[in-house]
Amino acid sequence: MLKILKYSIQDLLRSRWSYVYFIFYLLLGFVLLFLNNNMDKAIITLMNIIIVLTPLIGTIFGVMYYYNSREFTELLLAQPIKRNKIFIGQYIGISLSLTLSLVLGLGIPFVAYGLFKSAIIFDFVLLLIVGAFLNFIFVALSYNISLSTENKIKGFGYAILMWLFMAVIYDGLFLISLVMFNEYPLEKFALAATMFNPIDLSRILILLKLDISALLGYTGAVFKDFFGTSLGLLSSLGVLFVWVILPALNIVRKANKKDF
């Protein structure tokens, strides 16, 4: 598995997409800090970008890589290697290389601007952790989609739709249901609903670390009691972890059954 993982990363590095992604984040980080000249504000802007773009890029990368390396994968399958090792190796390879680009791309500008001396280092680290989780989650989801669809165009379509659903449509439905049922106590429902969307969960996790927590507390103590505590933080990270594990297991299940 490690060999396949290594190969995937090398392959991505050779295809230069990792560099493009890395340079994109690097530029973004420098431009944000240059324009804002204030790390606090840069982090808020960065959050908006991370929770929208990271999943999108993860999704597209996942699908693209699967379809592109399909022939090579078939070649590998002819060798005496376990199927799940091949696919999990590829999956971790992509996710790791994306995460590496993210962490280095954003880390370098912030470190250059004196991150270690500022108080927001924990917020920043949390931001990167959440970004990494989103990479792993969305690459896994897109791998699931591409494994179950032979048609490239269809696969891309479903993957983009999945991203659109998580990033936009889900929140729309969520908002509508909150407004429709506003005569009922909705705090618990809202809390549960955020757990079913990794983007929402990441957004709230970061928001709560960025001093906006008081706004959430303003409406219902439930949010703050839950997310504001370290238990809340840990359990939200735990849920994000589950969001990685379940699709990854599904990759294994699908790959083992699939007829190539």
Partner: peptide
């Protein structure tokens, strides 16, 4: 305006949909 009507919707602050 929506938050004024339904305070719980604040949980969607800074979402792309919003």
């Amino acid at each position: 305006y929506i938050v004024n009507q339904t305070p719980e919707t604040l949980i969607l602050l800074r979402s792309l949909f919003v």
